[in-house]
Nucleic acid binder design. Structure first.
Length: 541
DNA sequence: GTATGATCATACTGCTTGCTGGTGCAAGC
C-alpha cells in the first residue's frame, strides 16, 4: 500500500473517531500520522520495523495498524468505526466546511443519514431549529453540499494519471491496433471525469466482455463505456476506417477547436491532419478554446528540464518533513542549481512559522551549507503570510534581509472579491514582495478559493515587478493556467513552484509545467528557468 | 496514542473568524 493510501485510512479513522467523540489526543495522533505520511519521501511499505518505529509520532499502536494495512489491506479499528457509522454520514465527513460536531447534531438530533436527506431538510428550513444552527449556517452548508455534489466523480490529473496509464497498458496488451489517450485526459486538464481512449478501426470490442476489473456498461461499434476497477469511468472511441489520426485529433481537442479539423483520409500522423486542415500543429495540452486564434511557437514552450531552481520549499524549520541540508542535496542531485527555501512566517503558528530568532538560526545554517555544497546555492526566502489588511508579518528591517519573498494568504479565505483583491494588491505593492504565492487559495475538487479580479492583480504585478506563482501542487495548480496568456501579455513572469514539504514534493514541478504549457508559457517567461544570478537580478529590477 | 522525564504521570501548535445566542464554540489555517 502506498503512503497516500495508508494516510487516507488514518485520516478517515481520525474523522470518524471525532464524530464518535473519542479521546481527542488519540485523534490528534492519527491526524499527525496522516500529515507525516503525506510528507514522507520513503514508502513505509519498503521500511524495516526499526525504521518505522524511529519515525516521530509512530508508536506501537500506529506501527501495528500500518503493518495490518500492508498485510491485509484493511485496518480493523477503522472497520469498527465504519460499521458504527451510516455510509451517508461517512460521506458527509468529506464535505469541507462541515465538521464532526455539526454532523453529529444533524445525524443524532435531526435523524439525517445522507447528503440527499440533508439537502431536503435544508429546503424545508429544518436546520435552524437545531442548537448552534441558524439561517446563515444553514445556507452555507447548502452551498458547500452543492459544491461537493458538483465535484463528485471527478479526479485531479495527478491522481488519475497513473490509473489511466495502467488502463492504457491493459488495453494495449489486449489488441494489435493503435491505442491512445484522448479528451481532457490527453489535454492534461487539471480536473477530469473519465479516462478516454481512441482505438484504431478493427478493434475487437468483444475482448472486454467478462473482464475481471473492466465492467462494460454499453458497447457499440463506435463507443464502449464502462467502469475500470469499480470507480473510474472510461470511454473507448473506435475510429472510423482509415481516419485514425483525424479522429484522434478531433477527440482530443475541445469542441470548437475540433470543429476546425478536417477528415483527412489515411493520414500518417496528427501533424499531417493539422497541416492538411490548414492549421499549425499544437501539442494536445494547448487544444483549448482560449487559444483558438493565438499563435505559438511550440518549440519555445516550457519543459520540465528548463527549470533551474526549486522555489518555494519548506524544511523542518517550519512544517516540512526533511532537513534543509537533505532538501538542498536532493535538489542538487536532481540537477537543479539553486533552492529558494521558504519556510512559513511567524503568524502561521499551526505550521510552526519562524520567529525572528529562528530565522537567524536558519540563515546561519544556509551560510554554512552554501560554503560546504559546491555548484549549488540556497537562497534565503520566506513564505510570508499576507495578513487581513494586506500587510506582511515581519517588520521592514527583517523583510529587507531576505533574498526574496513569496507572499501568500493562509487565513480568512472568505473575503468578497473587492476586499480579497485589494488585500492581495496591497501585498503586491509591498516593496519586499517578489512573488505572489498560490493567488486564489483554491484546492481542486475541495475548495473554490476566494474570488479575485485577476486582471487587476496582473496589472498590479506588472506595475510593481512582482511575479506570480503557479503553485505546482496537484491540489492547487494556482494560478489557473487560463490566466497565463493575460499575465504574459503584460510582461508578468510566472514562477513554477513545487511548494514542497519534503524531498518528494519537489517532483510536483512536473504538474506545474504541464499546467504552464496548457497556458502556452514559454521558457523565457518563467522566472525559475533563469540561472541563479539572473533570477536574483530579475527580482531586484 | 505518543513522547518525555522519571517508572507511572503528564502534556500534547494556537489564533482568528463568524455564527449564535447573548458567551461559547466550530472550523479553518
Amino acid at each position: 500500500m502506498t503512503n497516500l493510501e495508508i494516510a487516507s485510512h488514518f485520516s478517515e479513522l481520525a474523522s470518524l473517531m471525532e464524530l464518535h467523540r473519542e479521546n481527542p489526543f488519540k485523534i490528534r495522533t492519527y491526524q499527525n500520522v496522516n500529515t507525516t505520511l503525506k510528507k514522507m519521501s520513503t514508502e513505509v511499505a519498503d521500511m524495516s520495523a526499526a525504521e518505522l518505529a524511529a519515525i516521530k509520532g509512530f508508536g506501537a499502536a500506529v506501527q501495528d495498524k500500518i503493518r495490518q494495512l500492508n498485510e491485509t489491506g484493511e485496518m480493523s479499528t477503522l472497520k469498527k468505526y465504519q460499521d458504527m457509522t451510516p455510509p451517508g454520514i461517512r460521506e458527509l465527513v468529506k464535505v469541507r466546511g462541515l465538521g464532526p460536531k455539526k454532523i453529529r447534531v444533524l445525524w443524532k438530533d435531526l435523524g439525517v443519514e445522507s447528503i440527499g436527506e440533508l439537502l431536503y431538510a435544508i429546503n424545508e428550513n429544518r436546520l435552524i431549529e437545531l442548537n448552534g444552527f441558524g439561517l446563515k449556517t444553514q445556507s452555507s452548508i447548502k452551498e458547500k453540499l452543492e459544491y461537493f455534489n458538483r465535484q463528485r466523480h471527478k479526479y485531479r490529473y495527478a491522481s488519475l494519471e497513473p490509473v489511466a496509464m495502467e488502463f492504457w497498458e491493459l488495453i494495449k496488451a489486449l489488441t494489435d491496433v493503435k491505442v491512445k489517450w484522448s479528451g481532457a485526459l490527453r489535454r492534461r486538464a487539471q480536473v477530469i471525469d473519465k479516462i478516454e481512449l481512441v482505438v484504431e478501426h478493427g478493434f475487437d470490442n468483444s475482448i472486454l466482455n467478462n473482464h475481471e476489473i473492466i465492467n462494460v456498461t454499453s458497447n457499440s461499434a463506435f463507443l464502449i463505456d464502462g467502469m475500470y476497477r469499480e470507480n473510474y469511468s472510461f470511454e473507448i472511441h473506435i475510429a472510423p476506417e482509415s481516419l485514425y489520426y483525424s479522429f484522434l485529433a478531433k477527440m482530443t481537442g475541445s469542441d470548437t477547436y475540433s470543429a476546425r479539423l478536417k477528415d483527412i483520409d489515411s493520414a500518417d500522423s496528427e501533424e499531417e491532419v493539422f497541416l492538411k486542415s490548414g492549421l499549425t500543429f499544437w501539442p494536445p495540452e494547448l487544444r483549448e478554446e482560449i487559444h483558438f486564434d493565438q499563435k505559438f511557437d511550440s518549440s519555445e514552450l516550457i519543459k520540465e528540464q528548463d527549470i533551474k531552481g526549486v522555489i518555494h520549499a519548506h524544511s523542518t524549520y517550519s512544517d516540512g518533513f526533511d532537513s534543509l541540508k537533505a532538501l538542498a542535496l536532493h535538489c542538487k542531485k536532481q540537477g537543479f542549481t539553486y533552492l529558494g527555501i521558504t519556510d512559513h512566517s511567524q503568524s502561521a503558528v499551526y505550521a510552526q512559522g519562524l520567529s525572528i530568532e529562528s530565522l537567524e538560526k536558519q540563515w546561519d545554517e544556509i551560510n554554512q551549507l552554501n560554503q560546504a555544497i559546491s555548484d549549488f546555492q540556497i537562497l534565503k526566502g520566506i513564505e510570508s503570510d499576507i495578513l487581513n489588511d494586506g500587510s506582511l508579518d515581519y517588520p521592514p528591517e527583517v523583510l529587507s534581509s531576505f533574498d526574496f519573498i513569496i507572499a501568500s494568504i493562509h487565513s480568512v479565505l472568505n473575503m468578497d472579491i473587492e476586499r480579497a483583491t485589494s488585500r492581495v494588491i496591497k501585498a503586491i505593492e509591498n516593496p519586499y514582495t517578489s512573488i505572489i504565492g498560490h493567488p486564489t487559495g483554491r484546492l481542486l475538487l475541495a475548495r473554490p478559493g476566494y474570488p479575485l479580479d485577476f486582471e487587476k492583480i496582473i496589472d498590479a504585478c506588472a506595475a510593481n515587478d512582482v511575479s506570480i506563482e503557479l503553485n505546482a501542487n496537484p491540489y492547487r495548480l494556482d494560478m489557473d493556467w487560463s490566466h497565463i496568456p493575460m499575465a504574459v501579455e503584460k510582461g508578468v513572469m510566472i514562477s513554477i513552484n513545487p511548494d514542497a514539504h519534503s524531498m518528494r514534493g519537489v517532483e510536483h514541478i512536473k504538474y506545474g509545467v504541464l499546467a504552464a504549457r496548457k497556458g502556452g508559457l514559454y521558457r523565457s517567461q518563467c522566472l525559475n528557468t533563469l540561472e541563479v544570478d539572473q533570477f536574483l537580478k530579475q527580482l531586484k529590477k
